[in-house]
Design a protein around this nucleic acid. Structure first.
Lengths: 227, 227
DNA sequence: ATTACTAAGTTACGAGTAA
DNA sequence: TTTACTCGTAACTTAGTAA
């Protein structure tokens, strides 16, 4: 769909051509879309050829109505704008199960974290994390998450090293309850780590390469709309 | 606003750039808008120059966020689509008072009509009609009206001639209650005729050339959405 | 890897005009 | 009046690259 044709189709819709036959000349339309009469005429020919509008050309002006196909295109556009302006209640990812290199198991076994899991989340996690690789572009969604309610596990130190602060968010993987664990500082990876009280690979019947659906409810803490 | 730039701006919004900084390369964006990397890059430069987006270019990818100005453009677009898909509750015209050639006075004095006015509308109209000239394009709105609730005055015959069926619709001119009278058959004129129990020119304090606002409520009779 | 420049190729636009 | 054709030119796109 060429963008300039969409503009013309939208203009016709605003004139009422969704529900009615609209009587308008190519010249009048041209003014509305800021183009010449010739261009306007060509647009109408193209829309007609694509079956997005139906025309009857009289000796003066023409009678135009948007077809089912044309309405569908406008509807799709409308839905996209609704998505843009609707605040999401749930963030949805799709991703693939992959193997970590054992760090998940290491972290989930640290006493400092285990105690906080037990205290703040209510169970001792099964050792290790389920790693899900997401499309790098979807990482952008994680920024949204940062603004919403999460349970934070405090950093702590052992004699060897420091373990950083961690954010925990309730999540559903294929509708099984889990917790997404994110480092509170630093950049996001495109691998998400999930914990649960049970061995998730068995619970979900998944192994490396399987696709899973992830849903995260965002209980708004503050506004997601600030500048 | 060039239509193709709007498409790119919408794509960025769908990726979350309304509320967040989005990390994406010109190549990735190019795929989404079905263009080459070069074109995508140029679009971003143009959007940036127009202050519709804010960018930070890193060594890899770029961080993009839509500015207030960019949001305003998308909002305006959204509002237009809302208008397209919202069923109107009121139809609004603007027009200019003009003089008829006395036919209004002739018709509103016919006994066959007077009796029906009295019976179906509840008063005897002041002789003559107030004629309002509307923009010919606005005539298209009249087609919508045809689908909605109206009081119909039946046709009748005198020894001389036949008087056709007439549609009456309650209307407000500058918030004064009147009735729009339309011939039920034949083409619409761009001059609308209004009746009232009083002399409207006095009531409205208007004379030829004055602009007036006309509001017609559409009490849906059936659906306005059929094919 | 990226972004984005230049140059060449392609598409779209509108003046003139026929029907 | 209209719609819509031809055709010269303007605008946009992209391949090839530099940074």
């Amino acid at each position: 769909m060429k963008p300039y044709l969409l503009g013309m189709l939208k203009e016709l819709a605003l004139l009422g051509a969704m529900n009615n036959i609209v009587e308008i000349s190519s010249m009048e339309l041209a003014e509305r879309v800021q183009a010449s009469q010739q261009t306007s005429s060509r647009y109408l020919l193209e829309l007609d050829k694509m079956n997005l509008i139906k025309r009857e050309i009289g000796v003066k002006k023409q009678l135009i109505q948007i077809t089912k196909e044309g309405k569908d295109i406008l509807q799709e556009e409308f839905i996209q704008y609704q998505h843009i302006f609707a605040l999401p209640k749930t963030i949805h990812f799709t991703g693939r199960v992959i193997s970590g290199i054992g760090e998940g198991s290491y972290y989930t076994s640290r006493d400092g974290y285990i105690q906080q899991f037990q205290q703040k989340i209510g169970y001792i996690p099964y050792p290790g994390t389920l790693n899900i690789e997401i499309d790098p572009i979807e990482k952008n969604k994680l920024r949204l998450i940062k603004k919403f309610k999460s349970v934070d596990l405090c950093s702590f130190e052992t004699d060897n090293r420091t373990f950083g602060e961690v954010k925990c968010l309730p999540a559903l993987i294929n509708d099984i309850k889990t917790v997404l664990v994110l480092p509170a500082r630093g950049h996001y990876s495109n691998v998400l780590e999930f914990i649960a009280p049970v061995y998730l690979r068995d619970m979900l019947h998944v192994s490396d390469g399987d696709n899973v659906s992830i849903k995260i409810d965002i209980d708004t803490k503050g506004s997601a709309n600030e500048e």
